[in-house]
Amino acid sequence: MTRCELSGGRVTPGVVRVGQTVRRPMGPRAPFVHELLRHLDGVGFVGAPKLLGVDDVGREIITFLPGAPMPGTVILGDAEILSAAMLLRQYHDAAAGMSADVLGRHETVVHGDLGSWNILWLDGNAVALIDFDEARPGERLEDVGYFAWKGLRLVAEGPLVEDQRRRLSILAEGYGVRVDDDLLDAIEAAVAWLTDKGRAEAWPDDALAQLDGKRRWLGQVRPRLF
């Protein structure tokens, strides 16, 4: 049986393909992720791996899906942005059907780390989401804002602000929201969330300083993104 190590994702190292399955080390939130994957499979959402079980060394077994992730430094094209936005909307709609015991007062289950690195792409289309280790009950705009920031590279070294305004419009159209204060608040909240996570996990000072710089830059260009 063919075995090979897989790239992509940023959370879980040691992911291995075995035949038509993928074996992944289980994280501390594996029970929640497994419940999510079972739900997605049960409602017919095909844009995520199916959970098949756990192997004899304690790794989760999921289905291998066609496609490949792209690095976070890539500049997505218009069609890729639209495709990813539509897939994200489909995922949120599917996850929103989880029980009230899971969701509480939240709208859905957010992916939590959505970028080109956690999407499988096939012929320029976003076909599946992977690596749900950061998934948690939350609001739809949390993922939309995070993807707008990280996936569209809404940073000083990314595309020009005037082009980013157009790219944001494509993302919003594909998902079904508007480019308004709520979306821009969600983008800034994504930076704040990652900064808080970095502080909690004692990231290096220079990494936290870079995040602070990105937050300031977003505040400066915000009026030009409408």
Rank of each mutant, 00 (worst) to 15 (best):
E142L: 07
D181W: 10
W117C: 08
A172W: 15
L114K: 09
E162N: 07
V127D: 00
V161K: 13
A135Q: 06
V179Y: 08
W203Q: 09
W117F: 09
D143L: 02
A190P: 06
R165T: 08
R167G: 04
A156S: 10
T195A: 14
V161S: 11
R166D: 15
D143P: 02
L171I: 09
L122G: 02
G124F: 00
D181A: 15
A192D: 08
V191W: 00
G145R: 04
D133Q: 13
P137W: 03
L141A: 02
E142Q: 12
G176M: 09
W203P: 02
A202L: 12
G104S: 05
R140Q: 07
I170R: 12
L129K: 03
W121Q: 00
G198R: 03
R167V: 02
E188G: 00
V161Y: 02
Y146W: 05
W117Q: 10
Y175W: 12
V161H: 10
A148K: 05
P137F: 10
E173K: 15
A189K: 13
G176K: 05
H106W: 12
V102C: 06
G176A: 12
L120M: 03
W193Q: 12
H106K: 09
F147I: 02
L120W: 00
L183V: 07
E139C: 07
L103E: 13
E134P: 03
V155G: 00
W121V: 00
G198H: 03
E107W: 12
G124A: 09
E173Y: 15
K150C: 10
L114G: 10
R105I: 12
E142V: 04
A148T: 04
L183G: 08
I187N: 09
K197M: 14
I130A: 03
L160R: 15
N125Q: 13
P137Y: 08
E173C: 13
D185G: 07
I187C: 15
V109T: 07
L141S: 02
T195L: 13
G151P: 05
L160Y: 14
V177T: 11
E134A: 15
V144P: 01
P137M: 01
D181N: 12
R199Q: 13
L184V: 05
G112W: 13
R165P: 00
A135K: 08
G158I: 09
A192Y: 12
L194N: 14
L154I: 11
G124S: 11
